[in-house]
Design a protein around this nucleic acid. Sequence first.
DNA 1: GCTTGACCCTCCTATGGTGGGAGGGTCTAT
DNA 2: ATAGACCCTCCCACCATAGGAGGGTCAAGC
Lengths: 138, 138
Amino acid sequence: MNIGQAAKASGVSVKMIRYYDAVGLVRPASRSEGNYREYDAREVNELRFIRRARTLGFDMTEIAQLLSLWRDRDRPSREVKAIAQRHLADLDTRIREMQAMADTLRHLAHCCAGDDRPDCPILEDLGGATPEAVHTTL
Amino acid sequence: MNIGQAAKASGVSVKMIRYYDAVGLVRPASRSEGNYREYDAREVNELRFIRRARTLGFDMTEIAQLLSLWRDRDRPSREVKAIAQRHLADLDTRIREMQAMADTLRHLAHCCAGDDRPDCPILEDLGGATPEAVHTTL
DNA sequence: GCTTGACCCTCCTATGGTGGGAGGGTCTAT
DNA sequence: ATAGACCCTCCCACCATAGGAGGGTCAAGC
């Protein structure tokens, strides 16, 4: 199985397979006589695993850990869960931050007439957050 | 006012001020005899504006547009609102995506015992999403 | 056996926003 | 005059991904 077929079967792009190979996230693929990378079902499964983990937002460091636990039949599920929960906490933090942004923006946009007039609470907020500080520090 | 003072007054790091200068987000700062960048209250206000916009998640392209509207006293607030709403929609999309990730992960983590045993629904999900596809495509 | 086209290879570039550092110049206070 | 704080430019790294150039390999059809 060539890299193109592995890409189709796993849903990971050819580019990314080569990248994962280069950085050592997957073990170096064996090579054909013509120096083509060769893949079997096992390796395609690992690529799938990586793709699925990426869609859940795990970064490559976390995926490397998850992969090695996946390969280890005697892993304690505690370790997997710990990684997942750390990542989950991370996600929740980022979601909260983005929600704070969105809430502020929604409020400002709601207060903005959005017509021909120049008065705009959005720009006022951006420009005038704490204007007095400038005067006092100059 | 030197760049360090402008950084303190605006809350934007020295590094980032130079970067905004280099990429043209702000107009090139005037220079002293010794080639030091010089800032006045007006420019510090623009840096503040940028910082505030960054905390609301606007990217540099959007900020460039917002800045030019801010500088234009005759802008129609419609244009500002349009940019804000586009960005808001973007934020909401990303929030929804991350929430989907978090929800899935929360469910999987909840189902995982997290003890010494190797059985782990998290790894099962990552590895076994659609395993039959591999067999049928090999 | 030769050509064609699909596929593969490596190496380089860019993205976006930020930080870090090297190597060297400027300014200010003692 | 010297020390120390500050500034300058230029380069590198991050993370995950995509694009392209320049060239090799393979399979099918002639």
